[in-house]
Design a binder for these strands. Structure first.
Lengths: 142, 142
DNA sequence: TATTGTTATACTCTATAACTATA
DNA sequence: TATAGTTATAGAGTATAACAATA
């Protein structure tokens, strides 16, 4: 069942790939009772608390948008605001235990679902792809 | 200025890549006075009119969500509803001239912006990447 | 004065459920 | 009855602008 997609320019292929991955991400998030944005927020926090101001950069959101996103996640018991130790204007956002569990489960499910899509890719090609993507594209901070 | 991203599992790399591409897509759409969803809709229509019902599948939206999206795009003069020739319940959605121009310009800008991110990738690697993505991943219809 | 974050406001996007019109 | 699409409703996500508190 090969649907013959003709060879695409790289940028073109990336856009399509990206939309596909987003659909998977959205579908999995939904199954875990999270919006994609909430899921993305939780995943960003999995490695440890992050300041609001850093979060706006990672998520590419205006600060007021982030306020709302964090509000809703906090209301749902997924994250908490921790006062900064010295700067009394600032907060760190941290996962609650429930939030950490949800982040972990959602993350695992996204990976599993994507891996299911990737079964046709040989180990050698997976390695190649991963290396190319990691080194060439993600290595541009922003 | 190499930020040393450690080697990631493929699925992991795809998720990060995808978020990065989405940010570029959103930023470019915005510069062209479109929401990302509107831009995606217009791009889907660039090849010719599409039925509402097909669109819900391509965009992975509920039909009522699509109604709203099309409403707003139509109100902005970007698309029109064309009655189906035989089935009087159905519509084809088509770009207006203005919509086609906007789709074209936005699409070009997205590609250009991504290409700018890809300058560090050698032609050989671009070819490789493109082939891998096209053949292995996008070739799974849905 | 500059920075951190919130509030107020207005849209857009999305889903669910109920509905209309046509097949 | 089934399908194509809309309407009603509610909530989430987003940006802009104005604001408060702290640095």
């Amino acid at each position: 069942m090969t649907t013959t997609v003709e060879q695409l320019p790289l940028a073109e292929a990336l856009v399509r790939l990206s939309h596909r991955v987003q659909q998977v991400f959205a579908e999995v998030s939904r199954r875990h009772d999270l919006t994609p944005q909430q899921a993305q927020l939780l995943c960003r926090l999995a490695a440890g608390p992050v300041g609001m101001s850093d979060l706006t950069r990672w998520l590419a959101l205006e600060k007021s948008s982030l306020t709302g996103l964090v509000d809703r996640a906090q209301r749902r018991g997924l994250v908490v605001r921790i006062p900064h130790e010295t700067d009394r204007r600032a907060f760190q956002i941290a996962l609650t235990d429930a939030g950490a569990a949800r982040a972990e489960a959602t993350h695992r499910a996204v990976i599993a679902q994507l891996d299911a899509l990737l079964t046709t890719v040989s180990p050698a090609h997976r390695e190649q792809l991963s290396t190319l993507i990691t080194d060439s594209i993600l290595d541009t901070p922003r």
